[in-house]
Simulated scan of single mutants.
Amino acid sequence: MMKKYAILLCSCLAASAGFAQQGYTLRIKLSHFKKYQPRLSYVSDNKLSIDSVFTTEKGWLVMKGAVNSPVMASFTLKGNPALEAPAGKQVLTAPVLRFFLTNDVITIKGDADKVYAANVEGGEANADWADLRTKESRLEHENWIATRKMADSCKTCDNTVVTQLTRKMNSSKGRALQDMETAFFNSHPNSLYSMYMLYRMQAIMELDSLKTTYNKMGSAAKNNVYAKFIGNRIASLEATAVGQPAIPLRKKDMDGREVSLETLKGRYVLLDFWGSWCHPCRASHPHLKELYGKYKAEGFEIVGIASENGSAEKCRKVWLDAIKMDGINWVNVLNNEGIEQFDAVTAYGVSAFPTKILLDKEGKIIGRWIGGEAKELDVKLKEVFGK
């Protein structure tokens, strides 16, 4: 008899565990809620998911779905005027509510007019940084109140003034957030939120610093999509560090011709990772044109590797339009085309635009820089060509 009960209990537990892993359930209760549109968004498997579908159950809004692994999600209410602040010709928007979306029952309770500060419970990942999230929400609320007051007094301000005032307030908030998050990061090496913070910072970190910081983190923090991304980026950066041979480039130019780094050996080649949407990238083109004109006859070539957003047709159009508008007549390829066979951005560990990588005549990497100015590139080319 005891054996039968044990088998039955195990079966129930197994069924219960299987059910818990089937997906998430968001239970949302907000005072002052009217006919607003809930908006849940998150990135999973490199795809942005946006969900506004909900049901009502005994006064609760209920949203359901499933994620493959814990992801940072944002939640807000579209159509709520309390979350908007018209200023000049702009409409400033309130912060969003951030939390980890996991396949658990997660409850959100608060005020619809300050949903960004709502209380979130459910799932170990959210419990882990609950105190920090409460402090951050308080700071977000104070900053939003200040933003609304600024907007009220700036009904006729032009966009430049609004942008300057908003940037000033966000800068102050950003410093305070950074202090709180740094303290949390240093004291919680096993936290998923700490790994998420490193994921946000990794784009501007040098390889040695990124590796050192990542290696200091505990094993529990390394079992998630953000840790996997960082691990892959470290591997890509190591494979494309200064002194390493360049990874073969398998792309076609704007006319459909194959582009190979092998055929460019004997020249110094600059790989310029950019996009039509990237203002610093576009702003760097005039100076790159000066360098190209100065050194091309000396054996200098540029290969622009663009990364665009949208459908295949849209990507190609905005890419070609930007090339024409900026007058960049060097070799140009679109990373989106043939990305299934070869993704140059991932292969070279590029996570910030623009990124510039310089190859010597043998195809070996001799320089790597992030940012539009890249003054070190000027110095390196002067060293290489002697002028």
Rank of each mutant, 00 (worst) to 15 (best):
R133F: 03
R167H: 14
C157P: 03
A118Y: 08
N80P: 05
G174Q: 04
H141G: 00
M169N: 04
L139V: 01
T102Q: 06
G88F: 11
F99T: 06
F184Q: 03
K173E: 09
M63Q: 15
A146P: 09
R133G: 09
A118P: 04
G65I: 10
A125Q: 15
K64S: 15
A82S: 07
K78G: 08
Y116D: 05
S69V: 04
I145K: 02
K114T: 04
N186T: 12
T160W: 03
N68E: 11
G88L: 11
N159E: 13
T56M: 14
N143L: 08
T107V: 09
K168D: 14
F99A: 06
P86M: 03
G123M: 08
S74M: 08
N126G: 06
A85W: 11
S171I: 02
A151F: 01
I108L: 13
I145F: 01
S153N: 14
A87S: 15
V67R: 01
F100I: 01
A94S: 12
A118H: 01
Q164R: 15
K168S: 11
E136V: 12
I108E: 07
A151L: 02
K114N: 06
A94C: 04
D113S: 05
D152M: 12
A127G: 15
A85C: 05
G88V: 10
D104L: 00
E181M: 05
V91G: 01
M180N: 05
N68Y: 02
V67F: 07
G110M: 04
A87W: 10
N126K: 05
L97I: 05
F75V: 03
F185R: 05
R138A: 15
M169C: 01
W144R: 03
A183W: 03
T93H: 12
T107M: 10
E142C: 00
T102A: 13
K149Y: 04
V105R: 06
T163C: 04
D111K: 07
G88Y: 02
C157A: 15
I108Q: 09
L83V: 10
A112I: 08
K114H: 03
C157W: 06
K149Q: 14
T156A: 05
T147M: 13
D128P: 10
T147S: 02
A125C: 09
L165C: 04
L97A: 08
R133V: 00
N103Q: 10
C154R: 02
L61H: 12
V62S: 09
E84H: 02
V62C: 13
K135S: 13
